[in-house]
């Protein structure tokens, strides 16, 4: 009886009573324990003076576990990276779980462990959480929402509005791997390739860049919609054009193969561990140098520049030397066959 109860999450685990407590103790508290984790209704935290960044993000991914990560790691990286993009050093996170009735306890354990590992690596503490259990079919496995705050150091001012003509565009690694990994993990197309998600916490990379130079105009986390969508957002927000050199864009060979088979554009596949960085041209070498020493950013490359012409548009210099427009982002990515 006791054994059975432990195997899967039941509606009772979300009831707020003894079983909820059990779940919190046996899984969440086990992994997330730290001096700031609250046992009360809210965490009470001390902050230094200055500006803070705050962000929230909900995570739904099917399958919940995939090569290179899982929804837990993703939920920490997502919010940590959003904070880091504002130049902030992430400090505290909260997390809210919505779990489908019947979700294997063992899997939940793995996901929580993965969250704890990732949080530790990112130097961020989980200080409050919430658990709800929904009836079978009402959610797909587990949904996680994380909210985080971080402190922004003096003199750092990054924003999507700050790209200026002449700036360089850097990506911190090859593009499209997470999206490709999920596509393959869903096994809809019977395609097999050695691709793992790029999912990674990037607060360390941002800190390293800012220590090389605080003069960075834009940092963006290229998640859903990929690098292409982020470039269009920046072009729009800053009222500038973006020109990228097709040949210098890092794309993993296997990702290229999968995209070729399905007629997809790697620039529009999601990343979960890639930043788009826009900075003055004379800072490019310093930035590349620190990035290339980073654990997750060794393949960083300059892929293009900010231009005055074609404001709001992203153009590509093609392999035959002419210029073309990157198709603007739109809708659901559908494999193109015919």
């Amino acid at each position: 009886m006791q054994e059975n109860k432990r195997k899967a999450v039941t509606l009772a685990h979300g009831g707020g009573g003894r079983q909820t407590n059990e779940l919190i103790h046996e899984i969440f508290k086990k992994y997330f324990d730290n001096p700031d984790l609250t046992a009360d209704d809210a965490a009470v935290l001390s902050m230094d003076e200055g500006r803070i960044a705050m962000s929230t993000d909900g995570f739904i991914v099917s399958p919940a576990e995939f090569p290179g990560g899982d929804i837990g790691k993703l939920s920490i990286c997502g919010t940590v990276n959003d904070l880091a993009c504002m130049g902030a050093r992430p400090m505290y996170l909260t997390c809210a779980f919505v779990i489908e009735e019947g979700f294997p306890m063992e899997k939940l354990d793995r996901i929580a462990a993965s969250m704890a590992r990732t949080a530790e690596e990112a130097g961020v503490r989980i200080v409050a959480g919430d658990t709800k259990v929904a009836g079978r079919g009402q959610v797909d496995g587990v949904f996680i929402t994380t909210t985080g705050i971080g402190r922004i150091p003096e003199g750092v001012e990054t924003s999507g509005t700050k790209a200026r003509p002449g700036d360089v565009v850097i990506v911190t690694g090859d593009v499209g791997r997470h999206g490709c990994t999920i596509l393959l993990a869903r096994e809809d197309f019977g395609i097999d390739a050695d691709v793992t998600s790029d999912c990674a916490p990037l607060s360390g990379a941002v800190e390293a860049m800012l220590s090389a130079t605080p003069d960075i105009h834009v940092i963006r986390d290229a998640t859903r919609g990929g690098v292409g969508t982020v470039l269009y957002e920046i072009a729009e927000q800053s009222g500038v054009g973006v020109n990228i050199d097709a040949a210098s864009l890092p794309v993993d060979q296997s990702v290229r193969g999968v995209c070729g088979l399905l007629g997809l554009e790697p620039l529009y596949l999601a990343c979960e561990g890639r930043l788009v960085v826009i900075a003055p041209k004379d800072r490019a070498d310093d930035l590349l140098q620190v990035l290339r020493q980073g654990k997750y950013t060794a393949d960083a490359a300059v892929i293009g520049e900010i231009t005055e012409d074609m404001p709001g548009r992203v153009t590509m210099t093609t392999e035959i030397g002419s210029k073309t427009l990157l198709p603007p982002p739109g809708g659901e990515l559908l494999p193109r066959i015919c």
Binding site: I320, S322, K323, T324, C338
Partner: peptide, 23 residues
Amino acid sequence: FRLGVRQLLPEAVDLISGPGCPV
């Protein structure tokens, strides 16, 4: 389009996209 081929073509050449896509 992806390669920007139209830019290479002289003014006297019209490139027409005919009925080639089954969709």
